[in-house]
Design a protein around this nucleic acid. Structure first.
Lengths: 164, 164
DNA sequence: GCCATCCATGTGATTATATAACATTACAGC
DNA sequence: GCTGTAATGTTATATAATCACATGGATGGC
């Protein structure tokens, strides 16, 4: 639940890492990209990204809303959904369809079709670093004459921590 | 909207096909497999599968509920959700997480991690016949020490009909 | 500076999706 | 027929997401 507890995992895998650092750098990368592309990382948007980086797992919109409220922001659903819309459409966060929840993007700098691994025990979500399937998937699509614009790949199972 | 309109596409691709036949055979396959495995294809479950085969696209639970009501069945949400739970957990139907909707399975006889192609214009959903990505996906999972139990692959884009 | 415009936010209400909880009924095995 | 289990009926509620409309705040032209 707390950020320190979730520090035992990383969004790019299930290994320990320096969490305080990744929140910090995550925000910095976002800030830099927004400045560069003329996007506005407003206080609410920044705060939502911060809590996603902080918590380091998939958060529902209403959980985010609670955290916003606690931080003194407005707390009606559209507030969270708008910020999430901004973050997801610009690649700073992703929606996990399977959970109706959101995570900070682990590779905000590169264009990618993310692959997620969701532990059904601890609900930790890891974002795979590579996009290996894309070719195979596109082969199928080509055969069918289908043009892929966005692909969702979500694997559910058991993470190393819960398995051990 | 009507079943005849959706007949122009097929769940295993986007090509025309004999729709009346595929509803018929879909029901028969389900019936046979249930008899074989001791599963009970009760009237409600059968009806839900029938409307999914009939409509031949992703249907929301409440749309299914409307069709159940029209057919003289009970129409409270749990009725539909229970039938869908039965159908999905036994591989007769799939949930499209991206749409919060359900489709009849196009390959009910074989175990498979389905791959879907969703047209964002006409909302037609095609189920890819192959599972080519599984190896690549499992490679990633193995590297992370993650054990996959279920994988969701949903591609969104433009179908051949809408592109042409 | 001032206005016009656009984008973002505030807020209340509503819609859509899904499940909890508990009573009742059908059905298979003995 | 009795009994345990699975399936259904029904009410209420939880959870997720959007609509609609008012307000505020930055930016650019003049």
């Amino acid at each position: 639940m707390t950020s320190s507890a979730s520090c035992s995992t990383t969004a790019t895998g299930f290994a320990p890492h320096d969490h305080a650092g990744c929140v910090q750098t995550g925000l910095e990368i976002a800030q830099a990209r927004c400045a560069q592309e003329g996007l506005r990382l407003t206080p609410v948007r920044r705060k939502v990204l911060e809590v996603l980086l902080q918590e380091h797992r998939a958060l529902g919109a209403y959980a985010i809303l609670d955290l916003l409220r606690a931080a003194g922001f407005a707390s009606q659903p559209p507030v969270a959904y708008r910020a999430l819309e901004f973050l997801t459409s610009n690649g700073f966060a992703h929606k996990i369809e399977r959970l109706n929840a959101f995570v900070a993007c682990a590779h905000p700098s590169q264009e990618h079709a993310p692959t997620f691994m969701i532990c059904r025990i601890c609900e930790t979500v890891a974002e795979a670093p590579a996009v290996l399937e894309k070719t195979a998937l596109e082969e199928i699509a080509d055969t069918a004459g289908f043009r892929i614009e966005k692909a969702i790949i979500e694997a559910e199972g058991i993470c190393p921590t819960c398995a051990g």
